[in-house]
Structures are given as C-alpha cells and as structure tokens.
C-alpha cells in the first residue's frame, strides 16, 4: 500500500522544483541576454498568463470560451481610460479595477451562457466578445475606432518584463494551489460528470460561474499591463478575435487542464513563431511552418506537449538512463483488487 503522506510530499516536490527552476531562469535572464530577448520573453510571459487563465474555464472546467479576449480588452481599456488626463489614476491602481470589471462582466455573461454546452457556449462567448468590440468601436469614452493612448511613460523594457514575469509566476502559484484545492477538485468534477458532481453536493452552476469569473479577472490584469506597455490601444489591438485563438491554441498545444501546459504551449509557440518570423519573415511562408508544427503536435501529441514526459518515462531506454524501475518487470500490488477486470 502506498503511503498518502509520502505521495503528497512527492507531488509537492514535483510541482515546486520546476517552479523554482523557472523562477531562477527568468530572474537571471536579463543578466545574460540582450534587450531583444528580454522583449521576447516579456511576450512569452504575457501569453503564458493569458493561456493559463483560459485554461481554468477551457481546460479545468471543460467550457471552450472563444470570447476570452473580451476580458483582456476590458483590462486594457480600464487602465487606458483611468490614466487619461483628468482622471490621472496611478497605473498600479487601475489593474485591480480592470480585474473587478472583467469579473463582474464574466458573472453577468456567464449566468445565462454557462447553461449552454459545447459549441453553443463557444459561439455565445465569441458573439459576446464581438459585440463588445463593436460597442467599444462606437462609444466616445473608449476613443471609438481611433483608440486611446496611455500617458507616455519612462519605464524601461525591464519594468514590463518584471511586471509580466511576476504576474505569470503569481498566476502559476495560484493555479498550483487551485489544482489541489477543494474548489479545483469541484471544477474538475463538474467537467468530468456534471450529474455525478451534483449528486455529491456540488452546486455546479455556482462552481462554473466562479471558475469563469476567476478565468476572466486574470487576463484583465495582463490587458492593463499590456496597455501601459504598448502606449496605444484600439479594438483591433486588444479586442481582436485572434487573441482568443492564440490563448486556445497555446493551451491546447501545451496540454489542456494541466498546470504547466499553457505555459509550455505559450513558450514553444511564441519562441518558434518569433524565430521563424526572424528567419523566414520576408514572406508569409513562416505562418505555414507554424501551422505544420501545430498539426504535428495535435497529430502525435493529442494530450499536448506535457504528454511528452510520461510517454518518455515509459520508454525502456529512457527508464534505464534515468535509473527508474522497469514497470513491466514490476509485479505491482495485489492483482485481485489492483487490476480486476469485469
């Protein structure tokens, strides 16, 4: 019989060690790369945070949202509007406001739409995001289609790098806690079987709504940082549908419903598209290369890139190299109750 305490300790170590490695790598990165790569990794951090936020509703709760850009846009506009001359809010104070507005919007939108499932939910969220983009295009206080500029700032590239890396790491810690929390288990239970979850006392409507609000508030913060970074926003830059597409693709490529999946997906896709663009960007051919890369991953790694590790660990050669016990030679526990097949 395996000891639960020892397993928990192993699980915690398995989560914490990669996190420590990532923190050390990212904290020291500006010391040994030039400004260009600092900018690239700033982008990686932003997309990792966005994909991880989408993963809450798409991966853990099983509701594929195609309107998540709305929350990113709400955060961006909250920061831009509140920092306009006359209001002159401090940048840092605008971030929680954007998160709260996005959360309230998600609550209002989620109440009716989370009763839908599958393609219906996806279409409803896509339509709502499109409607929001059209609304922002037409009202005055958002600057309409002309957009808004944020006040000029003297912050260095390192400031945005630090902001976005800190946000992404805080999100990773939040998601690591979420994964093993009572709430996290409830969300995953609802995804796997809603009727069974209800029969176990789980208020599935409330759980779905909370997960949707949580997955909406986090991208709003990233939207606010992004607005301050790029100094000018309009509906095309912060409410475009392809922003959601990228969140979805990055989470899918990395691994849905997995703590590290979206971060890995964002890192691989952002770095590879940046590299391909730099080397083959004179034509649009590099986009086809990214498409081919995606197709290969989806075809051979349906669980995403996180599926590589367990698969590699099952290979005899890798097991020998890592000095892991051979599973096929392991007789395992009591065969009667361990692998009974009825």
């Amino acid at each position: 019989m395996r000891a639960g305490g020892a397993n928990s300790a192993r699980l915690t170590a398995r989560s914490v060690i990669p996190l420590v490695v990532v923190v050390v790598f990212l904290a020291t990165l500006p010391l040994w790369v030039d400004d260009y790569w600092v900018r690239v990794w700033t982008g990686v951090a932003m997309w990792a945070g966005l994909a991880a936020s989408w993963n809450i509703i798409g991966g853990y709760a099983g509701y594929i949202s195609f309107g998540h850009v709305a929350f990113f846009g709400i955060g961006a506009y909250a920061t831009a509007i509140l920092m306009q001359p006359g209001l002159d809010w401090n940048f840092f104070l605008t971030l929680p406001v954007g998160a709260v507005v996005a959360g309230v919007f998600a609550f209002i939108v989620g109440w009716p739409t989370l009763r839908l499932r599958g393609a219906y939910f996806a279409i409803a969220t896509w339509a709502l995001a499109e409607a929001l983009a059209q609304l922002v295009n037409t009202v005055d206080f958002t600057g309409g289609s002309f957009g808004l500029s944020t006040p000029g700032n003297a912050e260095t590239g390192f400031f945005y790098y630090a902001m976005l890396i800190a946000s992404a790491l805080i999100y990773l810690i939040i998601f690591a806690v979420f994964e093993r929390s009572r709430f996290g288990y409830k969300v995953k239970a609802v995804r796997d079987n809603e009727a069974a979850a209800q029969s176990l006392g789980i208020n599935t409507t409330s759980v779905k709504l909370q997960a949707f609000v949580m997955s909406a508030a986090l991208p709003a913060v990233l939207g606010g940082i992004n607005a301050y970074w790029i100094t000018f926003i309009n509906p095309q830059s912060v409410l475009a549908g392809d922003i959601t597409d990228q969140m979805v693709v990055m989470a899918l490529v990395g691994g849905l419903g997995h703590l590290w999946g979206p971060a890995i997906g964002a890192t691989v896709l952002y770095l590879s598209s940046t590299w391909l663009n730099a080397h083959f960007g004179s034509s649009t051919g590099y986009i086809a290369m990214i498409g081919a890369l995606l197709a290969l991953i989806v075809l051979f790694l349906p669980d995403g890139l996180v599926g590589l590790m367990p698969r590699a660990r099952n290979m005899r050669l890798v097991r020998q190299m890592l000095r892991l016990p051979d599973r096929r030679a392991d007789p395992g526990p009591d065969p009667d109750t361990s692998r009974e097949r009825s």
Partner: peptide
C-alpha cells in the same frame, strides 16, 4: 460515473 481525469484519491476529495 467516475471523474475519469482525476485520480482515485482526488475523486474522493471532490466529494
């Protein structure tokens, strides 16, 4: 109706 993407222990904790 097991929660198939969760471990046995996680299934119990969800309840």
């Amino acid at each position: 109706t097991p929660f198939i993407n969760m471990t046995v222990r996680e299934n119990l904790l969800a309840a």
